[in-house]
Simulated assay, not measured.
Amino acid sequence: MSDKFEQISIKPGFMKHNGGVLFRTISETEYEFKSTINENHLNAAGITHGGYLSALIDAGAGTSAHRAANGSPCVTISLDLKFIGASKVGDEITGFTKILKKTNTLIFLFCELKCNDKIITSGSGVWKILKIK
């Protein structure tokens, strides 16, 4: 659907403060996002902190849920993560989200983060579609 990434971290907050997230829609059920690792994303071992990777997946997958829900607000119900590999300063991290199932109130999805064509984090989660009146 879109070849071009857009910056989704436009309002003040955690992700904008940490460098932002670029996002694009591939199809109605597939989305991609990316971010570049900075020094403030590192842990004491000099690799990307798991908390930042968690936040990146939550932001990218959450935006995917929001888009899959036709723009309705969505909140994370559960997010199960597996930390598989590492990344360092200057690395570009690319996330890929696949919507597995959508109901009237829930979005089920799977997400992977890759660095240098290797999976570094994977996650599955459930998002609640909020019906704001």
Results as ranks from 00 to 15, higher is better:
127 W>Q: 12
84 I>Y: 10
12 P>C: 07
34 K>C: 11
86 A>H: 02
21 V>G: 03
110 F>D: 12
14 F>V: 02
94 T>I: 14
13 G>A: 07
34 K>A: 11
105 T>C: 09
54 S>G: 10
12 P>D: 11
23 F>R: 02
97 T>F: 04
119 I>G: 00
53 L>K: 03
116 N>I: 04
4 K>A: 09
36 T>H: 12
5 F>E: 04
13 G>P: 03
61 A>L: 06
91 D>A: 06
18 N>L: 13
120 I>R: 11
70 N>C: 10
95 G>Q: 11
2 S>M: 12
91 D>Q: 03
132 I>Q: 10
24 R>I: 13
31 Y>M: 01
41 H>Y: 02
102 K>Y: 09
131 K>M: 11
113 L>Q: 03
13 G>R: 07
42 L>P: 02
24 R>C: 10
122 S>L: 01
24 R>T: 02
133 K>A: 14
89 V>S: 11
3 D>Y: 13
45 A>H: 14
24 R>H: 12
32 E>M: 14
101 K>S: 08
4 K>R: 14
80 D>K: 15
83 F>D: 04
130 L>I: 11
42 L>W: 02
94 T>H: 08
21 V>L: 13
74 C>I: 06
61 A>R: 04
87 S>G: 09
19 G>S: 06
37 I>V: 05
5 F>R: 06
1 M>L: 12
91 D>N: 01
80 D>H: 14
3 D>M: 13
132 I>E: 13
75 V>T: 04
28 E>I: 02
41 H>D: 03
41 H>A: 01
35 S>D: 11
126 V>K: 14
66 H>L: 12
62 G>Q: 06
105 T>S: 12
38 N>G: 15
48 T>W: 03
20 G>K: 03
27 S>N: 00
106 L>F: 11
56 L>I: 05
91 D>F: 09
48 T>Q: 09
24 R>D: 11
56 L>K: 10
86 A>I: 12
133 K>S: 15
10 I>W: 01
17 H>R: 11
98 K>Y: 05
50 G>S: 11
22 L>P: 01
97 T>Y: 03
67 R>T: 15
55 A>F: 02
132 I>D: 07
64 S>Q: 02
39 E>F: 15
121 T>C: 15
95 G>H: 07
33 F>E: 06
50 G>Q: 01
118 K>G: 07
6 E>I: 15
21 V>Q: 06
68 A>D: 05
12 P>R: 08
3 D>R: 15
92 E>M: 09
63 T>F: 12
95 G>Y: 07
119 I>D: 09
38 N>C: 15
101 K>W: 08
49 H>C: 04
19 G>C: 10
63 T>A: 11
115 C>Q: 13
79 L>C: 08
43 N>Q: 00
93 I>L: 09
24 R>K: 15
46 G>W: 08
126 V>Y: 10
21 V>A: 07
42 L>T: 02
30 E>W: 08
109 L>M: 05
10 I>G: 01
50 G>C: 08
33 F>D: 10
94 T>D: 05
78 S>F: 06
46 G>K: 00
119 I>H: 00
110 F>N: 14
69 A>T: 01
29 T>R: 12
15 M>I: 12
129 I>W: 04
3 D>P: 10
12 P>G: 00
